[in-house]
Amino acid sequence: MPGTVPVNGNYSMGDLANYLTTKEQLDFTQLTALTIDFVSGQQRNLATFIPQPNQLGPLAICAKGASSPGTKIFTTTAYVNNAQTGIDVYRLALGS
């Protein structure tokens, strides 16, 4: 569903990318932001999705500055494996 939802802070980068990809594909949405949830006091993130009628390629997440295929869509800091981590979020080509 479009909107902002809490996301587990103990996912690895790969798990986080797969989780967000699954939500995008099934909910007809597009990830626009991923931030630490400072308000809840828990080690978790907040992901923001907007409606997207077109199918997008899967997401990939890597450490900030590391190289990755695809197009970088944003850089952020999020909880990864329960630790605040600088990450780059990439959009891979559909079919990759």
Binding site: Y11, G14, A17, N18, Y19, T22, Q25
Partner: peptide, 8 residues
């Protein structure tokens, strides 16, 4: 999670 993303 990887399988779920693939299926989605």
């Amino acid at each position: 999670l990887a399988q779920a993303a693939k299926q989605a």
